[in-house]
């Protein structure tokens, strides 16, 4: 019997010794794992945006895009995020919505901009979506909702337009996992504090949206895709309560007023 246990021990030891030896190799670099997933994301981002822009009307109005670009640039620069990789798109639509597509496509609706009471609120939404991008939530959501095999077939052009449209719908009008939302809230709050923007304004925005949800459920896409707003407001407030941060405006009051005016003119 002792001999039997000794042999079992040797087998287990061989298994772990093999594992240990293989662990010494940097397989991630060897197999280019990150590059492969990055190229899949790039292809999906390009494909989705091509389809989405045909469905909606993107505004090129400099009076709108320039101030929003300033807000985005501040968040990116202060958080060492490459601004050049973020593709900002402003869609003319009254719905209160913002979402991210793969490969750093950030989509904001004019309805959302119009509904923000100050730039910090808008920055909060931008930072939250940026957190989804930077933490890899978009691909995780797609894999979960659409399936890995379908995503791969899309990148090789083997999937139909309907399937791609369905994937866009998943990203633009369905909720993320609760854990991913909380993660994006906290990372977003960190981005805001580093960029000297008040994160409390974002918490306030969430609270305001949740209180209006019952009255205008259809227009408030962003809040219906980001459920549990009251608890999330509390979590953000708790998180920032013991943090020190500065509040510096990116746009002056005239620029902000001009932005709102341009959005309304549309």
């Amino acid at each position: 019997m002792e001999k039997l246990f000794l042999k079992l021990f040797i087998i287990v030891a061989i298994f772990f010794a093999t594992l240990w030896c293989l662990r010494q190799v940097d397989w991630m670099t060897l197999f280019n794992v990150k590059k492969i997933s990055q190229s899949t994301e790039e292809k999906l981002g390009e494909l989705y945006w091509d389809i989405y822009r045909k469905m909606e009307h993107e505004t090129e109005d400099k009076k709108i895009t320039v101030p929003i670009d300033s807000l985005l640039t501040r968040i990116c620069m202060k958080n060492e995020i490459d601004r050049a990789k973020v593709k900002l798109h402003i869609i003319r639509k009254d719905d209160i919505n913002a979402f991210a597509l793969p490969d750093h496509h950030l989509v904001l609706f004019t309805g959302l901009i119009e509904d923000c009471e100050n730039e910090a609120e808008l920055c909060g939404v931008i930072a939250h979506e940026m957190a989804h991008m930077e933490n890899g939530h978009i691909m995780k959501k797609l894999i979960k909702e659409v399936g890995l095999s379908i995503l791969i077939s899309m990148t090789s052009g083997n999937a139909s337009q309907d399937i791609a449209q369905n994937a866009i719908k998943v990203l633009s009008s369905t909720a993320y996992d609760r854990n991913l939302e909380s993660d994006a809230d906290i990372t977003g709050a960190d981005y805001l504090m580093k960029a000297d923007i008040d994160p409390e304004a974002f918490a306030g925005f969430l609270y305001r949206m949740s209180s209006r949800e019952k009255d205008y459920p259809k227009q408030l896409f962003w809040i219906s895709t980001h459920p549990g707003s009251e608890e999330r407001t509390k979590a953000i407030i708790n998180y920032i309560s013991d943090k020190n941060y500065q509040k510096k405006m990116v746009l002056d009051s005239t620029q902000w007023a001009q932005l709102l005016l341009s959005v309304k003119e549309d």
């Binding site: 662990r23 190799v25 991630m28 794992v33 894999i143 979960k144």
Partner: peptide, 13 residues
Amino acid sequence: VFKDVEISNQYIS
């Protein structure tokens, strides 16, 4: 594939 776990050197090994 379905959760938040990421591919790592440990997994490949």
